[in-house]
Design a protein around this nucleic acid. Structure first.
Lengths: 203, 203
DNA sequence: CATGTCGATGCACTGAGTGCAGTTAATACG
DNA sequence: CGTATTAACTGCACTCAGTGCATCGACATG
């Protein structure tokens, strides 16, 4: 880790910290990028060197987490039951320890711009999940659709659980795992895996 | 219908039509609101009298469709099986006849700004679905979470199917109904309905 | 005909986000 | 150690989405 890299990460961290604080204290729309930059002691232009949009500053660890997710998925040994492995990997990735993360999801239920950003981040997880499912099931038009549907549905459950965590403090891991298993448990998994063989019938 | 109302709707329709055409032909980011307004023969200011954002012009019938959905849900007689009724109402609402709608979903897979808009519209459907489920199941912290999770998951399946329709021409109604039934069929519905009685055990 | 309503317009403005050129300090290299 | 290079940061000018406000003019209403 260079001194340069350390300084860059520190700037980024400071920006994200002040952004979330300002969003929480005075509202998202009432906070300008100029204010965030000033609070972090940098120029407004610098903000956009670290985050592509104002709302992205509320999800500073997004890229890292997606990569973690991809890595954990890939290193999975349980290739016999891809859906189950996917569910577990998603749930393990839920971090309910950081208070900053909690603040983020509390904001999420009231700020549309942050909901947009959240949907955007969900799309990245979804892409990884879809790639994994296609790799597991084999490619095909119909399989591709099912992979997207399953990934979308899973992310929907995760999102609802995280918002409930922010709003009501409900432990997302427990309830997520239960609901995902109910939706994608054994009665769902077997027929889906059998799709490998009949992809030619679709389209 | 006033002459005034007719003119207003006509302006709105024209704006939406030119917006979608321009998005398709020259790209979303490469199209300015000024261009759309000019193509429709109105002033740029007028555009924002009809649509709150540039991307909203790609979903001109959104509000109407959500209201249709709400109405159809409310008039449902099948109160004994709310999940099944919800699935069917969602699928019935899918319109696969309009070529404009097809164009919209073709754009959706490549334009991030329109994906944001789509997520936003999905949130409206989700609210309606959640309200319906809470009304059916009875309120409670845990029930509320499950309602959100189910609604999110359902919208995820719908979204994937519609995008697959745009991309590959797959009939969304057939595949949607099948997947939704598999996820929320009888093994899922009974335990969920029994939640009515134990909402006190949550939160 | 008189009056009110409402869609459309023009204008000035805020704020997000971009392109570009320049500065400064850390790093790599001889 | 001295020099060249890299890269984070900065300032400036710009585009464009979206808003507030005052106004005009056509249509509606009595």
């Amino acid at each position: 880790m260079n001194q340069r890299d350390a300084q860059r990460l520190e700037t980024r961290r400071t920006l994200a910290e002040h952004a979330l604080r300002l969003f929480r204290d005075q509202g998202f729309d009432e906070t300008t990028v100029e204010e965030i930059a000033a609070a972090a002691g940098v120029s407004p232009r610098t903000f956009f060197l670290h985050f592509s949009t104002k709302s992205a500053a509320a999800f500073p660890d997004h890229d890292i987490r997606v990569e973690e997710f991809r890595t954990r998925l890939g290193s999975g040994v349980d290739r016999s039951n891809p859906l189950s492995h996917l569910c577990q990997t998603l749930v393990i990735g839920l971090d309910t320890t950081s208070p900053m993360r909690r603040t983020r999801y509390q904001l999420l239920s009231t700020v549309p711009a942050l909901q947009d950003e959240d949907s955007r981040t969900d799309r990245d997880y979804e892409s990884v999940a879809v790639a994994y499912l296609i790799e597991s099931w084999g490619d095909g038009v119909e399989v591709r659709l099912r992979a997207h549907a399953v990934a979308n549905a899973m992310m929907g459950v995760i999102r609802a659980s995280l918002i409930a965590w922010g709003d009501a403090g409900i432990d997302p891991q427990r309830v997520c795992l239960e609901m995902l298993q109910r939706m994608f448990g054994s009665p769902f998994d077997q027929p889906l895996q059998s799709l490998q063989s009949n992809t030619a019938t679709s389209g």
